[in-house]
Design a protein around this nucleic acid. Structure first.
Lengths: 225, 225
DNA sequence: GCCTGCATCTCGCTA
DNA sequence: TAGCGAGGTGCAGGC
């Protein structure tokens, strides 16, 4: 890992072209040759960058100004960095990173609802998780108290594309005479008004899920055993 | 901008929880207080981070180990960084960045097609760009040689969600007796087979757009004037 | 290997 | 300000 603070100008050419005027920035060069150009603001996204695999060539332009050219070995995209003045340049051996451990995403929500389907609709029982279809797996396939099929799509945040996804599943599932009629439940921790309107218009029920309450139910069960 | 290279352990708690075991990493602290934790690999995305607005509190934990706690002032998300050993710590005044100049995205494609609608379908003429509807603007509203309405959705890459989007527009537009019947054209530089199948199934035509050829047509016109 | 769907997405536009 | 679409998206999981 090499960290360079420098007054520089950056030009990217690839899927789009982008230009950064001369200014002081931080250049991060990772061990794999990838380069990040950061300024003192924004979020975690650099102003400009080159993803690996790529190669960095250090040289000088016609005026004798230091010039780095980073080229993607895959797509041919290029990043040209003209360096007017180097304020700091240091290298550090970081070793390989042990990596990130994540927990608590949509998968967990799916697990909890698979264990407590009745919180979505009274009498609902699980048939299977990740029910396979030709266009992808349905999060939960259930059966209601009257024995009818119910497809459940689970999202952390309920937005319009989730309703579209469930709509596609329902359309396909309802072509199967063994399953039809299949109704849908759109479950999320929060459902945006537009998504709710679209779902309702299509006869899809909405269920707002209380993640903490579900976890609580799980804990209670765990204590019983 | 402060750059710290240190052996550290990082724990994030917010939308999810994430843990980074003790290892050497680069900590980037921006002027707005946001923090990025980078390792020597991956792409431009940090292993962990805290977006602004947030505050950084430097202290020590029970064992006397240096501990940074970064807290989001908006969501309450927290990032806890335990620092075992500092290998480098430097600060730099970058000033405000003049910002990025982009060029060549989907907008340009839309402009070109608005000027040359006949490349999508013979005899097609433009009614207007960004034709407003209740659920968002249609990229191009056109009329064909027989005077019928044609809605065009433009994407750089033609994928399934683009077909869904156009389908929603068509459903709505066809409820308007002044416009109906409205047919659709899905235009993109490349259209994925799944998207093409879905579009065809719904009676939507597909048009593959040659960006370079369109630019060429534009250049020719420019030379004539 | 490509394809699909999620993301602590980020970012920019617009009503 | 919130909603919505696009991204040089990145990234993991499945086939």
């Amino acid at each position: 890992m090499r960290l360079v603070v420098a007054r520089c100008q950056v030009d990217y050419a690839g899927r789009l072209t982008a230009h950064l005027p001369m200014a002081t920035r931080v250049l991060m060069i990772k061990a794999d040759g990838s380069v990040l150009v950061h300024s003192d603001g924004g979020s975690y996204k650099p102003l400009n960058w080159m993803s690996p695999p790529c190669t960095l060539a250090e040289g000088t332009d016609a005026d004798g100004t230091a010039e780095w050219v980073v080229t993607s070995t895959k797509t041919g995209d290029s990043l040209r960095i003209l360096i007017e003045e180097v304020l700091s340049d240091s290298a550090h051996d970081l070793g390989i990173d042990p990596g990130l451990v994540k927990d608590g995403v949509e998968k967990h929500l799916q697990e909890l609802l698979a264990e407590h389907p009745a919180t979505l609709d009274e009498g609902l029982t699980l048939v299977r998780r990740e029910f396979p279809t030709a266009i992808g797996p349905v999060d939960l396939m259930c059966r209601d108290s009257e024995g009818r099929s119910v497809a459940v799509e689970i999202k952390r945040r309920g937005e319009i594309d989730g309703v579209e996804q469930l709509t596609r599943y329902l359309e396909l599932l309802n072509r199967d005479p063994l399953l039809a009629p299949v109704r849908g439940i759109f479950a999320a921790q929060a459902i945006k008004p537009q998504a709710r309107v679209l779902a309702t218009d299509r006869g899809i029920a909405c269920a707002v899920v209380d993640y903490d309450a579900l976890r609580g139910m799980d804990d209670v069960e765990a204590r019983l055993f």
